[in-house]
Structure formats: C-alpha cells, structure tokens
C-alpha cells in the first residue's frame, strides 16, 4: 500500500538519484540506466572552441551574403524590375534560412525581416521578405514597395552589426540545428512559408544546409564520444539530401505547389528521422 502523493516530476528526478542508491541494496533487478555521457570520454574543449568560432565566422559570412543578395533584390524593386526581383528573392532568402535560429534571437528583428502575414497584429505594419513576396507573386505590382525595400536593407544592416559581436555555446549549435529541422517538419513542409512564390524547397534545402553546417562543426567533438551517432546522422543527412535532389531544377528547385501530399510526407518523414538523433547531440557537447 503505497502513499499516493502527487509531486512535480522535476523534484522527483532529483530525489530519485538518492532512491537509486537505496534500492541498489535491495537485491532487486539490475540497473540499466544509460548515462548520457559515456564515462571516460572527456569533452574536447579545443574542438568545441573551434566549432563555436567556426560558427561565428559562418554566420557573419552568411549575413554578409544575405545583405549583398538582398541589395540586388531591393534595387530591382526600387527600379520597378519585377522579373529581377522575383529571381533574387529566393536567392537572397536562402542565406537567411541558413542561420535562421540566430537571426530569430534578436528580438523583433526577425518579425520585421521574415514575418508571415498571419504572424503580425496589423497587416498594415507587415514588412520584410514575405510582404515583398506577396507583392511580387500575388498582387503583381511593386506599387508602394520601395519603402519596404529600404526598410529591409536597414534591418539587414542592424542584423549584420549584431552578429558581428555574437558568440555561441556548442549546445546552441546543436539545438539550433534541431530547430532548423523541426521547423522544416512542422511548418515548412506544409508550404505555408512561401505561400505566394512556392519557393519552399529553396528554404527547406537552406535549413538543411544550415543544420548540416552545425553538425559538421561539432562532429570532431561528437565523434570521440559517440561515433555511432555520428554515423547515423551522416546517413540520415544523406537520405534527406537524396530526397531533396529529386526536386532540383536549374540553380534552384521546382515550384512546391507541384509536390504532392505523399511526396511532402516522405520529405517530412526523412527530416523527422534526422531530427530524432540530432536531438541527442547537445547532451554530448556540454
């Protein structure tokens, strides 16, 4: 007859460590707890430092390319060149999607640059890539878009200055990679991100590339602790890449509205299969 006392799990977790010691003397069944870090495997601090520094450089480089490519987009808008603007929008956005978790960490800046219409309180205040996307593909006019172009340029200058001084923890890289994958499997794969241009596959591939970069940077530290996990992640990155490659066209990807439900589900399944082991990486780098 056990007392039934409801307590919060977190407290239970702490106290159970003591319970383990006590129960060990009861001659009960053997314990099979798997420590999250194998004993003997020491954190490779030099590798981790190289990873986080490498990531800083990557983010700075991506935001630099984002600014340059976006300038071509905004110049085209100000010049009224619809075709050029349509060509540049996905090319510019991929750099944003590469480093999205970082870009999202600066308060309202992400909302200003990349909000979707359903994420703003007042559609009149809506700015950024998706506002321009709607003008280009749905409204089919650039009227009133020059101020949007100016605002986007200004926001990217702010972003650039912010990432220049940013530093990272190794676990942030791992969790950032996980966020990129989760975003694909929940909101990107549905086609809601680029609902006007249907350039979702560009973003999706860019998120994968961004996650892969984090993984590659962390790999030297992770492989020492869990080589099987690294092998599994590499295989699953390869699966996702193979799945995406079916949709390549010219220098980009086909219109996502032509990708059927079953094909989208297959993409989501392969990304979920990758995201699961990815969620174990952070625990190995702290």
């Amino acid at each position: 007859m056990l007392p039934t006392v409801v307590i919060r799990l977190r407290e239970g977790a702490v106290l159970l460590l003591s319970a383990a010691v006590l129960l060990a003397g009861c001659g009960g069944p053997g314990r099979t707890a798997q420590p999250s870090q194998p004993p003997g495997a020491v954190l490779d601090n030099a590798s981790l430092a190289a990873a986080t520094e490498g990531y800083h450089d990557y983010v700075v480089s991506e935001v630099g390319q984002l600014e340059t490519a976006t300038k071509q987009l905004t110049d085209a808008i100000r010049a009224g060149d619809m075709d050029k603007a349509k060509q540049m929008l996905p090319l510019a956005r991929v750099h944003y999607e590469h480093v999205e978790p970082v870009a999202e960490s600066f308060g309202d800046l992400d909302a200003s640059i990349d909000a979707r219409v359903n994420n703003v309180d007042n559609p009149a205040d809506w700015t950024g890539f998706h506002r321009i996307e709607k003008a280009l593909w749905q409204d089919k006019t650039l009227d009133g878009m020059s101020p949007m172009a100016d605002k986007l340029d200004a926001d990217l200058v702010t972003l650039k200055s912010k990432v220049a001084g940013e530093t990272y923890q190794a676990a942030q890289l791992a969790n950032g990679a996980g966020e990129l994958l989760n975003e694909i499997s929940t909101t990107k794969v549905t086609g809601e991100e680029d609902r006007y241009s249907h350039t979702d596959l560009w973003d999706l591939a860019a998120n994968i590339d961004g996650a892969r970069k984090c993984f590659e940077l962390l790999k030297p530290a992770v492989v020492a602790k869990d080589p099987d996990l690294v092998q599994q992640l590499e295989a699953r990155f390869t699966d996702v890449a193979a799945g995406l490659s079916k949709y390549r066209q010219d220098e980009g990807y086909i219109d996502y509205s032509t990708v059927g439900e079953d094909q989208r589900r297959a993409l989501a399944n392969s990304v979920n299969a990758l995201a699961e082991p990815m969620s174990k990486v952070a625990g190995l780098v702290v």
Binding site: P3, V5, I7, L16, R31, A33
Partner: peptide, 17 residues
C-alpha cells in the same frame, strides 16, 4: 521498483514521498 533505465512510474512518486 526498478531504477534507472527501467524506473517505475508509480515508484517515482510513491518512493519519493
């Protein structure tokens, strides 16, 4: 009440109490 990888869900609460 098996601990660790096989922790009793009830024990988690009852044992702590």
């Amino acid at each position: 009440p098996i601990f660790g990888g096989a922790m009793s869900r009830r024990r988690l609460l009852g044992g702590v109490a």
